[in-house]
């Protein structure tokens, strides 16, 4: 393996003092990220995701342990690291809100000391890939969420960072905008070799983009491996939620009754054993059904199940 990882984290801890006593947001985690990896970083709210990202980007000082990004200690060499790292927070803007979009790009160019010719060349490419041309003269505050997210990405990668930290970049976006963001990130990672750390709740983002997935819960890394392995191990269980016409016991071949509440039944079944269509057909053959929905397992569900020790990793 490459002897020089882009990110090295060893025994990393962060304790916060709160009114209810000390809380260990990150409770000793270790990992390395090699150049060009696309890592999904998931976990329930408050699991320690953003605290880890903040320690990697120099916003927070670790309580213990070691973190190095691009060979630098983030909090000690914050400004120097900032030149080689990009950060996009999905719900905040780093663009100049009241000014036309093109002025943000110009300012980023100056901030990161990108030579004008270089900036023009990179911008031309980004404008094409992200379809920004018509937006350049529009004030940022007038952009739609999807347009703004494309612009945020362009601004973040304009300085050609080696590492890109993304926090919920597709949150609130419609299907089309999500696809545009994902296509862009995939190409960026493949063509420029940019290392990407993606924090998200969206399992879809992770399965479509990430070669590797890390799951954190209660400050500990509880999964670090390929998305494939996780999917085979845990993502195969789907749930059919059924509202029966009458309150009666249900038994369907290929499914397990996971929960019952009034006339509602949760039927778990394995994706590779039976199709939803087949299961529904079997169900309808023996019961009268008022309504039904199909639930795919979400990342938090998987996290919870791994953490509870149901189906060990």
């Amino acid at each position: 393996m490459n002897p020089h990882p882009v990110i090295e984290v060893e025994g990393l801890r962060k304790r916060f003092r709160t009114r209810r006593g000390p809380v260990e947001a990150v409770a000793g985690i270790d990992f390395r990220v090699q150049p060009g990896e696309f890592v999904g970083y998931a976990g329930p709210n408050g699991a320690g995701k953003s605290t880890t990202v903040k320690m990697m980007s120099g916003i927070l000082l670790p309580s213990a342990g070691r973190v190095e990004v691009c060979g630098m200690v983030p909090y000690r060499e914050r400004k120097r690291l900032a030149r080689r790292m990009g950060v996009v927070f999905g719900q905040r803007t780093q663009l100049w809100w009241d000014l036309p979009l093109e002025e943000s790009f110009e300012l980023v160019g100056h901030l990161y000391r990108i030579p004008p010719a270089e900036r023009a060349a990179r911008l031309a490419r980004l404008e094409e890939v992200l379809a920004l041309g018509p937006l350049l003269a529009v004030p940022v505050r007038s952009l739609s969420l999807g347009q703004r997210m494309r612009a945020e990405l362009a601004a973040a990668v304009l300085p050609a960072p080696e590492v890109l930290f993304l926090d919920e970049p597709t949150i609130g976006l419609d299907v089309e905008a999500k696809a545009a963001v994902r296509d862009f990130l995939r190409e960026l990672n493949r063509d420029q070799g940019t290392t990407v750390i993606l924090t998200t709740h969206d399992l879809d983002d992770i399965t479509r983009l990430c070669s590797r997935l890390m799951i954190i819960d209660h400050g500990r890394l509880i999964y670090d491996g390929t998305v494939e392995a996780l999917r085979t191990a845990y993502g195969t269980t789907r749930v059919l939620v059924v509202d029966l016409a009458e309150d009666e016991p249900v038994q369907v071949q290929g499914a397990v009754l996971a929960r019952a509440e009034g006339r509602r039944r949760w039927l778990e079944f394995a994706r590779d054993e039976v199709s939803a269509a087949e299961l529904i057909a079997r169900l309808l053959a023996g019961h009268e059904v008022a309504d039904l929905t199909l639930e795919e397992p979400d990342i938090e569900d998987i996290v919870r199940r791994i953490y509870r020790g149901e189906a060990p990793p």
């Binding site: 980007s57 120099g58 916003i59 914050r78 400004k79 120097r80 927070f89 905040r92 780093q94 901030l111």
Partner: peptide, 14 residues
Amino acid sequence: RRGTFDQVLTRPTS
């Protein structure tokens, strides 16, 4: 509170 200051800290400036 709005997290703006966190973003400021990720900029290559004082």
